[in-house]
């Protein structure tokens, strides 16, 4: 089992969701986060006080999948989120020790899908 964490541009969320549904990945958690990588953020100015390098809005996806879904999920995220510009985001893949569905108390691979 893997946990896939992806950071993408907020306006790419719909396209990424659509690509994920296409490969039958339906279970995702989405949150709004702030961050910047190479893109270096933006300048904000408040009554003349300049704050540079401020964080940009991003969307973070968390998707837990079984091994055979890892590549399709990664490809779907790339397909939906890639523009070729800096700021497209990143995908992290982590080993997932355990997964428990609260309703049924099922564990492991069974609980993911």
């Amino acid at each position: 089992m893997k946990l896939i964490i992806a950071i993408i541009q907020p306006d790419k969320l719909e396209e990424v969701k659509e690509e994920l549904y296409r490969v039958e990945v339906n279970l995702i958690t989405v949150s709004e986060v702030l961050g910047h990588g190479r893109q270096k953020g933006v300048t904000e100015i408040y009554r003349g006080a300049k704050e540079s390098g401020n964080l940009l809005r991003k969307v973070r996806l968390e998707i837990a999948v079984n091994e055979n879904f890892v590549e399709p999920t990664v490809n779907a995220i790339i397909k939906g989120a890639k523009t070729g510009e800096t700021g497209d985001g990143k995908i992290f893949i982590l080993d997932l020790k355990e997964c428990i569905r609260i309703r049924t108390e099922e564990r492991g691979s069974l609980a993911i899908g």
Binding site: E44, Y46, L56
Partner: peptide, 16 residues
């Protein structure tokens, strides 16, 4: 895509 608040005015309505 980034929004007009940041790109046209260098400010945002609410802090996160």
């Amino acid at each position: 895509a980034m929004g007009l608040d940041l790109t046209q005015h260098h400010e945002r309505a609410c802090t996160v």
